[in-house]
Amino acid sequence: MKIAIPVDDKSVETHICQSFGRTQYFLIYDTETKEKIFLDNRAAGSQGGAGIKAAQTVVDNNVNVLLTPRCGENAAGVIKAGNIKIYKTISESIQDNIQAYIDGKLSLLEDIHAGFHNHGGE
């Protein structure tokens, strides 16, 4: 099973990024091999539609689940079309969230926001 997580840096000590579409990197974690790969998010600097492009990257890497604090509706549309389940993270720590997911303690992300579409957002 492969897990994707938006992260700020290419290191295991890094934090989970608050933005899905404009995260700098994705951590792809394989629960069987315990292998960790960091992918560049080519959508980070997009003028628009970053969520769509970021989601395409996640789908293209044959991920099974996405752990993220938030996700916009366009990105969620792509992710769901790729049969990937989206779970809501509970803290900034990567390890804690992976463990929580494995233990079945994470819940599905329900509050898909309408997207910020060039208006930034926090």
Partner: peptide
């Protein structure tokens, strides 16, 4: 597409009209 209005998922092209 510079605006990322298109995605190709599960052998299907998705068009985001509003993008």
């Amino acid at each position: 597409c510079k605006f990322n209005a298109l995605a190709y998922i599960n052998n299907k092209l998705i068009v985001f009209d509003e993008v």
